[in-house]
Simulated scan of single mutants.
Amino acid sequence: MNIKGIHHVSALTANAHENFRFYTEVIGMRLVKKTVNQDDTSVYHLFYGDEKGNPGTELTFFEIPMAAKNHGGVSSISTIGLRVASDEALTYWEKRLDDYGVKRSQIVERAGKKYLDFEDFEGQRLTFVSDEKNSGVSPGRPWNKAPVPQEKGATGLGPVKLTVRKPDSTITVLTEILGFRKTDRSYASSVDDQSDILVYETGEGGNGAEVHIEERSDLPPERMGRGGVHHVAFRVENEEELQQWVQKIQQLQIPNSGFVDRFYFRSLYFREPNGILFELATDGPGFDTDESLDSLGESLALPPFFESKREEIEEKLKPLDTKRS
C-alpha cells in the first residue's frame, strides 16, 4: 500500500467554454476527456493533461454555471502546481502569460526550486514549478500538437498547497495514515508572523509527489466557488490496492465514500480533519478505454452505466465544441 504521488486535482469553473479556451489555447494542455460530473450529469467534467492524460498530469474542472466567486480561506487547496522542464521554461511562461494578459507574479525560489505564480480567468491560483533541480516521480510528456513548444509545456501536476488552521491534524493523516514523510525543506510564508510552509512527500518524492502545508490563523474558512478547488486525488497502483485502502480507512472509522467506480479509474473519498476532501484513485484503466488516443476529448464520453441516458444527458448540456482542426 504505497501512495505514489498526486493523481489529479479537481476544481470548479462557471464557464466550460472559456475554461477550455484558457487551458488548451493559453496553457497548452490537452483536453483528454469531455464527460459529465457523475454525481450531477447535467454539468460537464473536463479533464486536461499531457498527451495521454497519464495519472499525475490531470487537472480537471466541474462546470457549475451559477457558481459564485471563490473566497479563499483555510480548509482549502489554495494552490495547484504545474510542472515544467526547466528554469528557462519559466522565463518563456513569463512572456506568454503577459501576451495573453494573465495575472502573474515574478519568478521566485521556494525550498530550492523556482516557481511562477499566476491565476486563470476566474482567479484559480496556480503556479508553474521548474523540474530543473527535481528528482523523483517522472513527468508526463506534453502533447506535440499543443500551441506551446513541447519542451516548454506543462509536464504534469506539481505540489499542491493546503491552507489549514490546525496543521497537526492534517499532517497526522498524511504521515500516519497515507505514508507521507516530512522533508528537510520549508519556505517562508508571504504573511508576517505566520509559520513556515512545510513540505511533505510520498512515493519516489519530487514535484509530482509533494504536499505543502500552510498554517493560517488569520483567515476564515474558504467559501468555495468558481476559481476554487474541490479535491486532490493521490495515486494508488490498482484496484486491489485501493480495496485495501477502503478496508484501512473503514477500520479507522473515518467517514468515507467506500469504493467508487469512475470507469476511467476507481476511487475512495474521505475528508481529513480540517475538512479538505482527499481522494485515492487508481492509475488505470485510463482515458483511452473508450476513445482512441488521437481523438481524446473531441466528443462527449460517457461511462457505460450512463450510455443508456445519453440523449437525456446531452439535452441538458450546453453545446461545447472541442473538435480539433
Rank of each mutant, 00 (worst) to 15 (best):
I254H: 07
V260A: 11
R216M: 05
E241T: 13
S257F: 13
L242A: 11
D261I: 10
F270W: 09
I213Q: 01
V236M: 08
D218N: 13
I213S: 00
G225I: 08
L268C: 11
I254F: 05
R266L: 13
N256I: 10
L268R: 01
E240F: 08
Q243D: 10
N256K: 07
A233V: 03
Q243H: 14
R235V: 00
F234Q: 02
E215H: 13
E239C: 06
E240C: 00
H212T: 06
K248W: 02
D218K: 05
R223I: 14
R223D: 08
Q250C: 04
E237Y: 07
V236I: 15
E237N: 12
E214P: 00
R271M: 10
M224F: 04
V232R: 01
Q250R: 14
D218G: 06
A233N: 01
Q251K: 14
A233T: 03
E241N: 05
L268T: 06
E241R: 01
Y264E: 04
R223Y: 07
R235L: 03
V260G: 02
R216E: 04
R262L: 01
V236S: 07
L268P: 02
F234H: 06
P255Q: 10
M224Y: 02
Q253V: 11
V260Q: 15
D218I: 01
R216H: 12
W245N: 04
H230F: 12
E214Y: 06
L268A: 07
V232H: 00
H230L: 13
F270T: 06
N238A: 10
Q253F: 05
I213L: 12
L252W: 08
I213W: 03
R226Y: 01
G228M: 05
L252I: 04
E214H: 12
Y264M: 10
L219R: 11
V246K: 04
V260W: 02
W245K: 06
M224H: 09
E272K: 10
P255G: 09
S257P: 10
V232C: 00
F259H: 15
E222M: 04
P220C: 00
L219Q: 12
P255F: 02
D218E: 09
L242C: 11
F234L: 15
Q251E: 14
E237K: 14
H231D: 04
Q251C: 03
H231M: 08
L219Y: 09
R262H: 15
Q250D: 12
N256T: 15
H212V: 06
V229W: 01
Q250T: 09
I213R: 02
R226P: 05
R266D: 14
R266I: 07
Y264I: 14
D218V: 02
G258K: 13
G258I: 03
F263W: 15
Q251R: 13
N256L: 09
Q251F: 10
H231G: 05
G258H: 12
V229H: 00
R223N: 08
N256D: 12
L268Q: 01
P221W: 09
Q247H: 07
R226E: 11
Q247D: 11
S267Q: 05
S267N: 08
E240T: 14
E272A: 02
N256P: 07
R271F: 10
E214N: 07
P221V: 09
R271N: 15
D261P: 11
E239K: 12
S257T: 15
V232T: 10
F234C: 00
V229N: 01
R216P: 04
V229K: 00
Y269N: 13
I213G: 00
E215G: 01
E241V: 15
V260P: 00
P221A: 11
